[in-house]
């Protein structure tokens, strides 16, 4: 396949915490403008792998990695790459909604401001909130604290904040795990809309969510001998859920796991 179809390519990726190898031998291509989900049992290294894509693991003192992640042909871990610039292009939404203790408006504006945005801030705020399907709910209280919103609204605020920076890729680590089913559906709908402009990678524990909301799925599992996570199977989501190639995958998605 053409290089251009991939937003990110992990090659021979190994991630360590101190001497413990948390993730091993990952070969994985993330397709541009598609939604890719990571599924797998707790502790198998999904978050670790996801954070590697925008160098968030750099913030963990004991973590280091081997191998490479290529973005448009450039290895993000080359020594001349600035992790700050990487994160401007590859944004992240976290498991627990974490809006800043600032106003709703400033939550959106702040990231754009530090990224040197010079246009009309009011427009950007409205546009970002609209893309995150939150505008109608908050348009009359933009000066209230972001923390005054409900959990689901907070998470959409976090997505809006990420969109405002205009990244190319959005990484989401279990973005719906703190939300009720309706808020969850809203976010999934939102992901489908965002997909036209962004490449999305999402970690989820929810099998239905992976099946519903993603185009590609990677199943990770933990090697019982060294407790390192490895990728069992990667495929189009439909394929993976209808005819898994691997017995472990089948066991996991049919709930016969462990």
């Amino acid at each position: 396949m053409m290089q251009g179809n991939y937003a990110l390519q992990a090659k021979d990726l190994n991630i360590y915490y101190g001497s413990f190898r948390a993730v091993k031998d990952i070969e994985l291509n993330i397709h541009t403008n598609k939604i890719t989900s990571f599924i797998g049992p707790s502790g198998c290294g999904k978050s670790t792998l996801l954070r590697a894509f925008n160098r968030m693991n750099d913030l963990i003192e004991i973590s280091h990695m081997k191998g490479s992640i290529e973005y448009k042909g450039k290895n993000l871990y080359d020594s001349d790459v600035d992790p700050v610039e990487v994160r401007r292009r590859i944004g992240m939404v976290f498991q627990k909604p974490n809006p800043f203790p600032k106003s709703i408006y400033d939550n959106i504006a702040w990231g754009a401001k530090i990224n040197g945005f010079r246009g009309n801030m009011d427009e950007l705020v409205e546009e970002s909130l609209r893309s995150a399907a939150l505008w109608d709910e908050v348009k009359d209280k933009l000066d209230q604290s972001g923390l005054s919103l409900s959990g689901g609204q907070q998470q959409r605020l976090c997505i809006a904040r990420t969109i405002a920076v205009k990244p190319e890729i959005i990484l989401m680590d279990e973005p719906c795990s703190a939300l009720d089913p309706i808020a969850t559906l809203k976010i999934e709908e939102l992901m489908r809309q965002l997909q036209e402009e962004y490449t999305i990678v999402i970690v989820t524990h929810n099998m239905q969510q992976a099946a519903r909301a993603s185009d590609y799925t990677a199943f990770l599992n933990m090697d019982s001998s060294d407790r390192a996570g490895y990728m069992v199977e990667f495929n189009e989501t439909n394929e993976m859920f209808t005819s898994p190639q691997n017995q472990e995958t089948e066991d996991y998605i049919t709930g016969r796991f462990g």
Partner: peptide
């Protein structure tokens, strides 16, 4: 201050100083 705020900030491409 919870670490999640720092993560949020770094995730938006903020520098350490910011």
């Amino acid at each position: 201050v919870p670490d999640s705020l720092r993560q949020a900030s770094y995730g938006l491409g903020a520098t350490k100083l910011e």
